[in-house]
Amino acid sequence: MSDNQGPVWEIFLQKKAGQPFVHCGSLHAFDKEMALQNARDLYTRRGEGVSIWAVPSNAIVASSPEDIGPFFEPSNDKVYRHPTFYQIPDAIGHM
């Protein structure tokens, strides 16, 4: 068995209950429990979170920089997806 530092994991922290999990960094760990514990010891030393997700890096599927055009630009002109596209009579007020 060759010596190594173990696989890389991506760590996501939830700052407060109810908030989304946000990527905060990576680390090495040999198993799931270790990934959680290492994340706790590394990324919550100053009370930065209340819940942790640890995901093996190689399980993440990422879009490529070349995808920017075809993936994301088409949505830029779909103005009708935003509430500001619609006119509400003043008399109605907030909707």
Partner: peptide
């Protein structure tokens, strides 16, 4: 023995 564990034991 490795960095992550170094930090853990120090905690």
């Amino acid at each position: 023995p490795f960095l992550e564990e170094d930090l853990a034991l120090t905690n």
